[in-house]
Structures are given as C-alpha cells and as structure tokens.
Design a binder for these strands. Structure first.
Length: 813
RNA sequence: GCCGGGGUGGCGAAACGGCAGACGCGGCGGACUUAAAAUCCGCUGGGGCGACCCGUGCGGGUUCGACUCCCGCCCCCGGCACCA
C-alpha cells in the first residue's frame, strides 16, 4: 500500500486495460442521455506537439466529467489526412504521400494513446482512406445534383509555391497562408460550392452557444450590406447593353454622383471604351491583370484609374457623368461597378481629387448650406441639391430615392454579401478526386454512385508543373462516359481538404456504415455535436464551411439538424518558449514525449491545464512542471498512507466541509472550462486534508469519504493515477464509470465567518463571528476593537454599510 | 483604420462592486542527511524599527467602497482591411 507513485509503471498498464475493455466505447443502444463531445481532429503532420496536448487534454477532461455525470458520451478521434504537406514531402524526400501520411497516422495514434484520453478508438476515421473519401465524393455528387456545386471560369488566387489555387480564406495579406509565396491571379475553370445561397441563414446564430468573437468574425466575413442596385443609362450603347448597374449602400447620395467607375475586369470595358482612349485603357487593364495582390496592397490609398471616353446619364438627376475604370473597384463584389460620389465616400473623394473631377455635396450637417470639404462627409445630415428631396434627412432621402427608383424601374433595393462562393478545386494529387468526367458528347457528367470511390492512382509522378499530377497520369485521365460509354476525360483536380473536415463529425456517428455517409438510424441519436472544442484559427474557414455543409446536408435530406456544433469553446494558442508561434522552421516546437515518459501523462495533462485560463494560451514554459509532479505525489501519499482515525463529530464536520466545498468548486470549474482553478481547488484540498491529518486523528468515516472524493475528482484530469488509487483503495474497476461526487449544502454552508471592518473603505480589522451576526452586534464588536477605535476617535460616525457575514464599513465625517 | 481579447508580485496566475495577489513556480530560512539530491516545515508585493503608508498600464469619473462599472488615452496579441 505504501508503494511510491510511479507513472511510468501505472500509465501503460491502465491504457492497455482500458483499450482491452473498450472502456470508452460509446454504445449506440445505451439509454442514458447522449453527449457528443468533439475535439478538432489533428492534421497528420508527423508528431504530436504540446499544442495538441493543450487542445485535447482539457477536452478529454470535460468528456470524462460528462461521462461521470451520467451521460452516454461519445468522444471520437481521427485524422485529417489529405493536404499539401504530404505532397511536399513526396517532392522533397521522395516518399509517397500515402506512405508519409499513414506512417504519421501510426506515430500519432500511438502518441494520442499515450495521453490517456477517453477516445472511442472504434470510431477512428482517416480522411485519406478510400472508405472515407468515397463518401466525400458522394457528397460532391449530391451537391452537384442539387445545384450547390457548379463549374465556372473565374480569376483564382494562384500560389506559385504550392502550384495550386487557394480559397480567399487561405490568402493572408496577398500571400499564401501556407508557404508565404506572393499570390497572383489566374483565370481558370474551377469548381465552386454555392455557400452564398446560405449567406442569410449563416448569419443566424440563434441556436448556438458560441464565443461572441467567433460569431462576430463570421458575421464580418459574410459581410451583409443593405443597399440598392441602380441603373445608369449609357450615352452610347456598348454592344447590346444600354446601361451600367451599380450597387450602393448610399442611394441617398445619388444626386452627388459626378463619375462612374467600372472594375478593369468588367466585361463591358472593351465595348465602352472609345477609340481615342483604347490604348490607355488596354494598358491599364493589362497591368491590373498582371498585378498581384501585393502590388495592389502596396499602393493602398493611392487610387489609380483611366477615363474610358464614355459617358452615362444619372437617371435621377439627369446629369451626364464620365465613366472611368479603376482597380479600387472589385469585379467580384456587387455589380463590379460603382457610382462615384466624392463628397460622401472617402475613396471616391481621393479619386476625384486626383483626376480633377467635380465634388458635389448633397448631404450637409447645417441645413441648406454647403461646406468646404477636405474629406468625404459621411455623417448623417440633411439633403441639398437633390431635387425633390431637398430638406429631408438623408435617412428619409435614402428611402425616398429607393422608392422612386423602384417606381420608375431604374433600380431596386437589394442585399449584397461580401461572402463569395467557395472555390474547392485544387490542382494537386493528395486530395479526394472530384467524381466528374468530361465527355465530348455529354459534356460535364457526374459519376454514378456505384462507381465510387474514384481511387487515387498510387503511381502518379510528382512534378512541379502547376497541374495536378493526376493530369499527367494517362491511366487515370482516360475513362468512359457513364452516360454514353464513349471516351471521356476525368476531372483531374482534387477537392480542398476543408471538404474532408466539413463532414467528419457526421461520419463518427457510424464510421463503418456501408450504405451511405451516415447511418440514418443513428444520425438522430447522436447529432448534433454537443460540445466542440478547437483553435480560434478555424473561426471563419472550417467552422463556416461546416455550418454551410450541414445546412446543405439537411436540404439534401441526409440529416435533420440545422447546425453541426451546439456549443463551441476556443482554446488559446500555446506558443514556443520564445513567444512565437511554434513551427518547424523557427525550431521552437516543443515535443511532450520526453516529459511524458519521465513524469507521466497525468502530470503533463495537469501542467498544461494549470498554466492559465484555457482560452488564453501563451508561451510555453516548463519551469513550473515540477510543482504538478510534486502535487500528484502528495495526492498519492495522502490517499495511500495509513492515517490514524477516530470517531469524532467535530473532525467529521471539518473534513466534510472541506470535501464538499471542494466538490462544488471543482464541479463548477469544469463546467465553465476553468481547468486552472479546478486544479488549484484540488491542490488546496490535498493541502487542507494534510493539515487536518497532521492536527491529530481524523474521523474515520469522513476521511474515507474524503479520500474517495479526491480520487473521483482526480479522475478526469489525471485518469491513470485515479484508476490506480481507486483500485488500491479497494474499489471495483473502473473509477471512470463511477458517478461524479455531489456536494451537500449542509456541509458547504459555513458557521463562522470573518467580517471585515473598514473605516471609510479602508481595512482596519477583522472580526471572527458566527454567521448571521446583526449589524448592531457587528458594530458593537467593531467599536470594541483597539484597531478600529483610533480611527473613530473624536469623529462623528456618519453612516454604516453592513454586508451580513462579510463586511462592515463605518463612514466618518 | 475597423472589430475582438488582454495589461495585476521576480514568473504563470486568482479575485459575485466588499480582506488584492488564492494556487503553483522561483527565492530565502529551517528540519532530515557525513554531504548533496529528494522530501517536509516556515517566510516571501514595495517602503518603514514600528503604528502605518503605497500599490492591479495611464488620466479622469460614479460609489460608503473599484482589478471589477463609465469616459478618454497608451501598449501587446489575434482577426479583417479599397466590399461601394
């Protein structure tokens, strides 16, 4: 019984036992209320680092806690296994991406098991497994069938480093988020998912308990703008077209339009341009097409553009205005054209100044007067020089002009989103192939479901050509058309890996189901995810895509939920000891393996949780590690050593009071993800128990209960030591299937309190008293205090503030 | 520029508007030891011999009382950034 705590011995022992018994397997038929806990699955980068532990361990603590609270908990794990690093390894080291990935899976699976997390390994999925990506492809077919997947030519973000296109979300400051290369634009035929169809619904977070921060980031990303689309008549028709349509959020400023601006990529540009401006316009358009995002950013603030020679007519004011092209207008937003109102839009103001275009003020802070403007006036005001709208507030004018435009058929109210459709084509090998063929006769043809999966050939060549290696693989490329059996060419792009992580939480429900992506009988049993945890870096990409996908899956009829993740918690990011983001190139990655093999997984789990609030993260520093290891040793000692006992009501009361107050604190802390203070409470508990023990014999029954509670409360955070202590104290296996201890308010209410005595808000003395002391009694005691009286001498007591059992504040004049 | 989050001992951090610094690290002192490590006990925000005084990024305010609420700044971290 008095053996030393030796984590290297007990941890592997219990891990094997738990695995053998499938202790954490979630039974589909268990009648207890379900709890689907999920931590973001790791990418198969090669090794688990402390960031993974920091993310996963607390998530496991909560899953274990919910299990002990009587839930049927499913806590699955898997691997996000497709992606560029595998292919880069192939290029650099000559290892096949599949081998690289599966080797990493094997390593990381072992590392994950060494954490002692309560994962249900029977539900493991690996996204590059054909048994999984078969269904990723199936989803694509369904999205295609329902019109949510479409092919279009579009200027794409091209990363020359990765030799592929990137989604808008993957471009940071004009550079590739992954490799840092400067992103250029390239026009390509690409596959898109129609996420914009769900823009409005994605703005509804009503059913979600998510961090405000993430919801805000998604709202901003979606970027809803209410405004109007207005038509301007072309003076000379441009081909078939008689008008230019613009989107504006400020129809109230329409009388102040002094020019029009069209994006360089706008299809009308060529037809608009007059012969004498042709050369200049062509040069500008060509330069804009060449310009990278970085070039554009480097000239931020500096507006450039050229006059097309064409004019149009403002149908509301009747004014004739020149048409420019300028690259500050984005082709991909709104209609790709804007009305220039220099007096009331800062960008237009700068442009007009630079090119000597008139500035006409139509909204003014002082009724009926114009001001000299040295910047655009964007505040509310009253209308001026706006025909029939003069004198109205601009808010009235906004509605009035929109009404008039709608009445006269020259415009309509509309809502525009910043969100773009999601470009999912990647010119890469290591991803799920898009299950489409191109037939000379039938055009774009989806494969039949029974033709899935489209397998990746294992003998592709990896060359940095800018095309998918699949495009060079003749055996893969040539196939037959599912419709006409004639010769056809396969789509050689693969899907963005975010498509794989779009639906993995659905697959966990029935990972081995063969008749579809998810067993329809089990979907309602487990979905949605009750608690999702992961890094905030996924706030707009993964989390937004997954929400979109769930809604699409619902409309396809596969699931009945509107949202995938009911509750979300973002842990902070753990940085390298240098305070920088951990990365291999910086050489500041800290691997946990050494610490774990020396001090144990329990100590490491606890240490990471003890560092600070989970949502904060921060630089990693192992100087405090010893403290956690020491504490576990102390906990072991207090739970195992012979303790002299007696029967004593007062001792029982003291022990139970401490135990029950701790149970309350620990319970509330876990519920609120406050793992650092949870551990602090447990440390105070062991310290307190030791003090009671050292003070003399303790009540035997209360002590036994207290030790039992200690072990149960250790179980989520330190599962191995808890299991060992549970067995050694004569209980039956397993501590992890026990009920979480409950606190009894009879023991948590204290009988004696310390009342703080203040004079004018400054602490002067403390009174020990039974609870429920009246103000008069407290006052009497305070007046008797030698520490308080000197501050009252000779002064009139004004009023007193008494907070029962807490504080007495005497205010003197 | 805009939107979040954060600035508290030597360090990581606690603190329903009510004793600032719980818990832990580190440090100092002591016990045990031939000695060291490990372990255990005590002290540890700054100033002052002391009674006390000063202290939560800075400046104001509300309040009997402010780390906490309000107003105005500074710094750090994250996100967005010509979205009409």
């Amino acid at each position: 019984m008095a053996d030393r705590y030796d984590p290297t011995e007990i941890e592997p022992k219990w891990q094997e036992r738990w695995e053998r018994d499938a202790l954490y397997h979630a039974d589909d038929d268990d009648p207890r209320p379900k709890w689907y806990a999920l931590t973001m699955f790791p990418y198969t980068s090669g090794n688990l680092h402390i960031g993974h532990w920091f993310a996963i361990a607390p998530s496991d603590v909560q899953a274990r806690f919910m299990r002990m609270r009587g839930h049927n908990v499913m806590f699955p794990i898997g691997f996000d296994a497709f992606g560029l690093p595998a292919e880069n390894a192939a290029l650099k080291q000559g290892i096949h991406p599949a081998k690289w990935t599966w080797d990493n899976v094997a390593t990381m699976r072992g590392q994950l098991k060494s954490m002692g997390a309560s994962f249900d390994w029977q539900r493991e999925i690996v996204t590059c497994d054909p048994a999984y990506y078969r269904w990723t492809q199936w989803w694509f077919l369904k999205l295609f069938e329902t019109g949510l997947a479409y092919r279009a030519e579009a200027p794409a973000n091209w990363c020359p480093g990765c030799q592929t296109v990137l989604a808008n979300e993957q471009v940071k400051d004009g550079a590739c988020e992954r490799c840092g290369s400067v992103v250029s634009r390239r026009s390509l035929e690409q596959w898109f998912f129609r996420i914009t169809k769900y823009a409005e619904e994605l703005l509804d977070f009503g059913k979600l308990q998510w961090p405000e921060q993430v919801m805000t980031m998604q709202r901003n990303w979606i970027g809803r703008s209410e405004g109007a689309e207005l038509s301007f008549a072309l003076e000379q028709p441009a081909g078939e077209t008689q008008e230019i349509r613009v989107f504006t959020t400020r129809p109230d400023t329409v009388y102040g339009v002094t020019f029009m601006v069209v994006a360089p990529e706008h299809p009308l540009v060529a037809a608009l341009t007059t012969p004498d401006h042709r050369a200049e316009v062509d040069a500008y358009v060509a330069a804009a097409a060449r310009a990278t995002e970085i070039d554009r950013l480097s000239t931020e603030g500096e507006k450039t553009g050229v006059f097309t020679g064409a004019y149009c007519v403002n149908r509301l004011s009747g004014n004739r205005v020149p048409i420019y092209i300028a690259d500050y207008v984005l082709y991909s937003y709104g209609t790709g054209a804007v009305m220039g109102v220099p007096a009331h839009d800062q960008r237009d103001f700068e442009f007009a100044r630079k090119y000597g275009i008139p500035i006409v003020q139509v909204i003014t802070p002082v009724k009926g007067e114009t001001q000299a403007l040295d910047a655009a006036y964007v505040e509310p005001g009253s209308m001026i020089d706006s025909g029939p709208f003069d004198g109205q507030t601009n808010a009235e004018g906004w509605q009035g002009i929109a009404d008039k435009a709608e009445r006269e058929g020259i415009g309509r109210r509309t809502i525009t989103y910043r969100l773009r459709d999601w470009l999912i084509s990647r010119q890469r090998y290591w991803g799920a192939p898009i299950p489409i063929v191109y037939c000379e006769k039938d055009g774009i043809v989806p494969l039949r479901e029974d033709q899935l999966p489209v397998l990746l050939p294992d003998d592709a060549e990896f060359l940095p050509t800018g095309q998918s290696p699949l495009a060079l693989h003749q055996g893969f490329l040539h196939t037959t058309c599912p419709k006409c059996d004639g010769p056809a060419r396969r789509e050689t792009d693969t899907m963005d890996t975010f498509m794989c992580s779009n639906w993995y939480y659905l697959r966990y429900v029935s990972p081995h189901f063969d008749g579809g992506p998810i067993d329809p009988a089990l979907a309602p049993k487990w979905l949605p995810v009750d608690q999702y945890t992961g890094g905030a870096e996924h706030a707009v990409m993964h989390l937004l895509y997954a929400r979109f996908f769930t809604k699409a899956a619902r409309d396809i009829g596969v699931v009945a939920i509107d949202e995938p993740f009911t509750r979300l918690f973002n842990q902070g990011q753990i940085m390298g000891p240098d305070g920088q983001r951990m990365s291999k190139s910086r050489g500041n990655v800290v691997a946990p393996d050494q610490q774990v093999s020396r001090y144990g997984a329990d100590a490491f789990r606890c240490y990471l949780m003890f560092l600070g609030p989970w949502d904060q993260g921060g630089p990693y520093d192992d100087s405090g590690f010893a403290g956690l290891s020491r504490w576990l040793h102390r906990a072991w000692t207090i739970a195992t050593e012979e303790t002299p006992t007696t029967r004593d009501g007062e001792s029982a009361r003291a022990v139970r009071s401490l135990a029950h107050r701790t149970i309350q604190r620990v319970t509330e802390d876990i519920e609120k993800f406050r793992f650092n203070t949870m551990l602090a409470a447990l440390m105070e508990y062991t310290n307190g128990l030791a003090r009671l023990r050292d003070a003399g014999p303790v009540d035997g029954a209360a002590w036994t209960e207290a030790i039992e509670s200690l072990i149960l409360m250790l179980a989520p955070a330190a599962p191995h030591i808890a299991e060992e202590l549970w067995e050694r104290s004569g209980h039956s296996y397993s501590v992890h299937t026990q009920a979480w201890p409950r606190w009894d308010t009879r023991y948590t209410t204290v009988e004696a309190v310390t009342i703080v005595v203040q004079v004018n808000g400054k602490l002067r003395d403390r009174i020990q008293a039974p609870t429920g002391l009246s103000e008069a009694q407290a006052m009497a005691q305070a007046m008797a205090s030698g520490k308080v009286r000197p501050f009252l001498d000779g002064k009139a007591v004004g009023r007193t503030i008494y907070v029962p059992d807490k504080l007495l504040n005497i205010v003197i004049g």
